[in-house]
Simulated assay, not measured.
Amino acid sequence: MDGRTDRTNAVDTELLIVNAVRRNDEKELKEAFIYFIYGLPQEEEQQCQYMHKVMLKTELMIEDSYGMTEELKKQFKNYYSNLQKLNAARAVDVCYKILCSAIEKRKDNAYSNETKYFKEYMSEAVAYIEEHLDEEDLSIVSVASHVYLNPVYFGRAFKNTFQMTFKKYLMKCRMERAKRLLEEGKTSIGNICEMVGISNPSYFSHLFKQYTGKLPSEYKKEYEA
């Protein structure tokens, strides 16, 4: 009974470690390793066997998902090659470091793939923003809905792509359009307010001065013949 219980606990802790790496969670990995160590049998040979199984399962999970770089493959290979030379304590230390490295690589890979994936949506989102810039209620929710993404998820992807928040990007677009219209001098400041989706002239003037350092009227005069 004791043997079966120990094996069940070992399987449970193996799963905790694999899932920690799957979720790219260093804190969870550390806690799982501590739990795993305290649950190991007394015999050192068995301890190394259990550690070996954990590494095999984790390696397979990474290969089936993402993040398995050539460098990481080499780390796993070196571990297996030197397995006979490692005592249990050293094996645990080496394995922990390899899996921490795996999480780091997976995080980098996930960020890179996510940014590349969402760039396809961003071009459509930017076109939609330009087309609806005169709408005062244009928001992250309406744009995210247009490209069929969750607003929170869209906001994060947008920031990763443009290195600024959606709100800041929207304001930049509105102010840049206002600048162009003022430079052309073909319409009034009141009309420009409407054309950039800011109906309140006082608020528009306040935002424009924040953005350019000048009031709209001052900016317009610089481009009058």
Rank of each mutant, 00 (worst) to 15 (best):
M1T: 07
R4C: 00
R4A: 10
R4W: 09
R4F: 06
R4S: 07
R4H: 06
N9I: 12
N9R: 11
D12V: 10
T13V: 02
E14V: 00
V21N: 01
V21Q: 08
R22W: 14
D25N: 14
E26F: 11
A32N: 12
F33L: 10
Y35S: 15
F36I: 06
F36L: 10
Q42L: 11
E43L: 06
E44M: 03
Q47P: 07
Q49H: 13
K53V: 04
E63K: 15
D64I: 05
S65M: 15
L72H: 03
K74N: 03
K74P: 00
Q75M: 12
F76Q: 04
K77T: 12
K77G: 02
N78S: 06
Y79M: 08
S81G: 08
N82E: 12
L83G: 01
Q84D: 14
K85S: 14
N87R: 12
K97T: 07
I98G: 06
I98V: 12
C100V: 09
I103H: 08
I103F: 08
K105E: 14
R106M: 15
S112Y: 12
K116M: 07
E124L: 07
E124Q: 10
V126W: 01
A127S: 15
I129Y: 02
I129K: 04
E130N: 10
E130R: 14
H132S: 02
H132L: 00
H132N: 12
L133Y: 11
I140L: 11
V141C: 05
V141K: 15
V141W: 08
V147H: 04
V147A: 00
L149D: 00
L149K: 14
L149R: 13
P151R: 05
V152L: 08
F154M: 01
F154T: 02
M164C: 03
F166S: 01
F166T: 01
C173R: 13
M175C: 11
R177W: 00
L182P: 05
K186I: 04
S188V: 00
S188I: 03
I189M: 03
I189F: 06
C193D: 07
V196C: 01
V196P: 02
G197N: 05
I198C: 03
I198V: 11
S199G: 07
N200D: 15
N200G: 04
P201L: 01
Y203H: 12
F204R: 00
L207K: 14
L207Y: 13
F208V: 02
K209T: 09
Q210S: 13
G213D: 05
P216F: 04
E218M: 01
Y219L: 07
K220V: 07
E222N: 01
Y223L: 06
E224Y: 08
